[in-house]
Amino acid sequence: MAQKAILGTSLEGICPTYLYKVVLLGSTSVGKSSLAYRYVKNDFKESLPTVGCSFFTQTLKLEVATVKFEIWDTAGQEKYHSVCHLYYRGAHAALLVYDIANKETFNRAKLWLRDLEKEFLPDEIVIALVGNKTDLAAEREVATEEGEEFARTKNLLFMETSAKSNHQVEDIFMAIAQELLQQEQKKASAPSPHGRSTVDLGESGARMGCC
């Protein structure tokens, strides 16, 4: 699935490594930790509610680059809302997770998006809307089309997943990786004074090295 020649031929023979901070946001019990756990450990377990934040890393070796994700899995409880900006500060990508069997969590995801829009410029962050728990299709409250439509109007990536039955979990992270790499390419070909440089080692830019 990896897109070839994404960074052009100038980097032939060199496989760059990109480091991206990815945050998982969403209401309590929508499966943020389970998605991260499935993606990183390929397993499913009932976990305790997250307090504060937990962390995972995953490295993706694509043909054109190596992508290392630093995954920040945040607590979903309402009370953390006031401190949440500390968690997503400097993120390169965000997964807005909701539970397809709980309409309220979908509405909350829209509010999260509004928060992110305040914090980031549109080209500063890749956002994916993720409808989790497709294994609970019988109790579905949010139609696939509804999620899709919202994602389309807001220009977000969209996918429905199930951490429990391992449905499309890897795919959504892969889609994010590709989107991020595409943006790197765009930035490389048309560097803007406001854009982040790929070799910038500062906190906001993706750190790049050679493997």
Partner: peptide, 19 residues
């Protein structure tokens, strides 16, 4: 590194170290 205390001490304090 601009690591606000809330990023690391929340779990320690709130759970009084039980986790």
């Amino acid at each position: 590194q601009k690591i606000d205390p809330i990023l690391y001490m929340t779990e320690w304090f709130m759970c009084a170290f039980s986790r």
